[in-house]
Design a binder for these strands. Structure first.
Lengths: 147, 147
DNA sequence: ATAATTTATTTCGAATTCGAGATAATGAAA
DNA sequence: TTTCATTATCTCGAATTCGAAATAAATTAT
């Protein structure tokens, strides 16, 4: 059962990591669908909600999405009335995405629920374990990114 | 910087988990593309390589994919000649996917390289840390799935 | 000042995934 | 046995994502 050498251990880590995140995101998706959004729309909306207006291009960095995909998501959120585009006055290449009143109202309503849901989903570990896990994941992730 | 209550800690855990896995999978994808496969194709091929022939439906469970998606991936691998379909003699609803000689040869060649790559990518933690991380992720994931 | 390069966004087509429904076979119930 | 429900696979259309190329504006270099 246990990995008998470091390579197998690394592979096992990758598999367990993938499956753990899959279990979690599958539940989180259920929560988000209940708000009439998909996970990407929610992520973009949340970014604007918490960090204020953003150049469209910067959204991609934070939400881990290609710029062409951002265009698509921003279009959808705009059609739903939750955000709007706003041209940058100093650089005409740039377009900001800004959350609307409707978007604000929605997020005021659903974000607390969303946090509760995530907390419930992550209740398999206690506070200290979560802190430890976060540190280890940061270490793992930063190293992987640096290669 | 640090989360000041449990809900924020859970949210942070989710974000860090997502980003860590993203950093890792992005590197693993690079590795797999180098073998002329995409990650899903590789996962299916690896399953058949290590676990032997599988009913198409069971592949979906292990690779976390809907049955209609499995059909698509199996079609592609079959066209590439790495696997073939084999009807089940006792249950005519069932079709097995079986790795071919060509698929075997490919995996004999690339799987060791793939394990090396994963090990390099995961080298940010030592063996004990990996073991600990695995246990915590299992605990987290199993709980999330059970909700 | 003009040209060349870089940057931001969008368009377009392709790849991947899903869910709902179709088809066919098996198993259970009457 | 005939019917009903379940199971396995596939088809189809829609959603999402990407990468390459197009467009347009800003910046840098000559």
């Amino acid at each position: 059962m246990g990995a008998d050498n470091e390579k197998e251990l690394s592979l096992k880590l990758f598999v367990v990591l993938t499956r753990a995140l899959d279990s979690i995101t599958s539940k989180i998706k259920d929560d988000i669908r209940g708000y009439g959004l998909n996970p990407t729309e929610f992520a973009v909306l949340e970014l604007l909600y918490h960090k204020g207006e953003q150049p469209i291009q910067k959204i991609g960095d934070k939400v881990l999405l290609a710029s062409s995909s951002i265009t698509y998501v921003v279009d959808k959120l705009e059609k739903k009335g939750y955000i709007k585009r706003k041209p940058c006055p100093t650089d005409r290449r740039v377009t900001y995405a800004v959350i609307t009143e409707l978007g604000q109202t929605l997020m005021d309503e659903i974000f607390p629920k969303h946090m509760d849901a995530i907390n419930d989903i992550c209740a398999g570990l206690n506070v200290d374990e979560k802190k430890l896990l976060i540190e280890m994941l940061k270490k793992l992730g930063l190293f992987a990114k640096s290669i």
